[in-house]
Amino acid sequence: MLDVRDVRVRFGDRDVLRDVSLRVDDHEVVALLGPSGIGKSTLLRVVAGLLVPDAGSVWLDGTDLTDVPPHRRRIGLMFQDEQLFPHLDVAANIGFGPRMAGADRASITRRVETLLALVGLEGFGGRRVTTLSGGEAKRVALARALAPEPAVLLLDEPLTGLDRELHDRLAVDLATVLRDTGTAALLVTHDHDEAAVIAHRTEVFTGGTV
């Protein structure tokens, strides 16, 4: 269970997050809904550990994560602009997490195959990521974020920048993948329908208490 307690972040003299608290239970998908520029991404960065808050704490399964660096938090993040590694092919992108965890080559290959199948991209392993379409890149980013089996997956506007039809199809696929893998997830979005399709529970985010 992810537990965010009274997180505060100030940039200059502006409170971006004012005492934000929220919980995500095991296997639960929570959507944070709110207009852009209100600090949703900042909150995800705090949960991820990429940004240290001015006050408050982040707990996972009863452990205080505040001083734990992101690579030891068992929390995954799917970036809004994917951030695929352009110097690696699709398989190496997906296999990156397991490789960092010290997995052997054979098990990395198996894991990559499983995830490619999960996101519907069988046979894409050898492709350069720069040749992928927008939708394919999103699928690879999802597979890559899932590969280290994070306890909680953070999704930062994961489906923006796609045309409507592709967006709707991917939203359904994303919901299915999260449910099938039983991954707890925190999704930030400005899209009501997207939140409704993917999440079990939707919270309206105002920058203050959720």
């Binding site: 660096p69 992101p70 690579h71 995954g76």
Partner: peptide
Amino acid sequence: PPDQRAAAVMLGASPLRA
């Protein structure tokens, strides 16, 4: 982009490794 390193860190790489 700085987020490339953030992406690697989120996948379990230490800052130096990332």
